[in-house]
């Protein structure tokens, strides 16, 4: 139909003939070309890409968990609970260690008995007797608050009791929290709980040992780890161990699909890790 409606630009001459379709095509290409900024053709260096991540210019506390090194001794959990006055015999913890056992028939058994505060000393995932020859693979994954860049727990707090500090640690104001537990529900990592001590009784979570790291100490869990599986530091400092670990290894974060931008990076995760 269109092709029959020829438009002659140069009536009566040897004119170039253009159909309406040609003009529309040309217009579309011009517009499409105009909207692509020149910068889109630039080749981005890794440094430039890193700079587009807004962690602020200053200090940004981050954490690297090397899951391949974890043996599941749970000394980190023990140290954390003692250091941070989380009642030892109650089944809540700021940090915990999960055991993943995949059987040869494909079944995955995941457990973290008593948050691994007493470590893993028996081959009894979820209390089951598992034969060694049935196990395809198994490993331990330490977990803690991810101190997200975009913490969804903070967004839902109705009273402004939880917040992210300038150096990137998510804290709870115990005098201001009303204990509604919206944040507990909204953390994709299950890192929060209500403090079991009736004198506290508000939302509780890992603080990256804020009282220690601001004094130049390591977090209690990373000090307690004899296997080098837990490292804490300033990820914006190119000289820090965590910065080097992140840039020299293939790292992953947990549940990136939630968009929280976690600041706990993992080496040696597996697709069966939740």
């Amino acid at each position: 139909m269109m092709s029959t409606r020829q438009i002659s630009r140069n009536k009566g001459g040897d004119g170039v003939k253009q159909s309406r379709r040609d003009i529309l095509k040309l217009g579309a290409i011009t517009i499409a070309g105009a909207v692509i900024p020149l910068s889109a053709f630039e080749l981005l260096t890794p440094e430039a890409l890193a700079s587009t991540k807004k962690h602020g210019a200053g200090k940004r506390w981050g954490f690297v968990v090397n899951a391949t090194k974890c043996v599941g001794c749970g000394m980190c959990v023990k140290a954390c609970k003692t250091e941070n006055e989380v009642p030892f015999d109650v089944n809540v913890s700021r940090t915990w260690v999960e055991r993943y056992v995949q059987l040869k028939d494909g079944e995955v058994i995941i457990d973290s008995p008593k948050e691994a505060r007493n470590g893993f000393i028996k081959n009894d995932p979820q209390g089951r007797q598992v034969k060694e020859e049935d196990i395809a693979k198994g490993f331990f994954v330490p977990k803690l608050c991810n101190q997200c860049e975009k913490p969804s727990c903070v967004q839902v707090c109705p009273v402004g009791a939880t917040y992210r500090t300038e150096d990137g640690v998510v804290l709870v104001d115990r005098t201001w929290c009303i204990g509604c537990a919206y944040c507990v529900q909204n953390c994709p990592y299950g890192a929060r709980f209500i403090h079991p001590d009736p004198k506290v009784n508000v939302a509780e979570k890992c603080t990256f040992c804020y009282h220690r790291i601001t004094k130049g100490l390591n977090s209690a869990c990373s000090d307690a780890c004899a296997f080098g599986a837990r490292k804490i530091g300033d990820i914006n400092d190119p000289e820090s161990e965590v910065h080097k670990l992140i840039t020299n290894n293939r790292v992953m974060v947990l549940k990136p699909e939630y968009g929280n931008e976690p600041m706990v990076f993992y080496i040696g995760l597996d697709h069966i890790v939740r």
């Binding site: 967004q155 402004g160 009791a161 009282h211």
Partner: peptide, 13 residues
């Protein structure tokens, strides 16, 4: 993300 009582940072420190 940063709407809070600033004194709480020192409480934790």
């Amino acid at each position: 993300y940063q709407w809070h009582r600033e004194g709480n940072e020192d409480d934790w420190k």
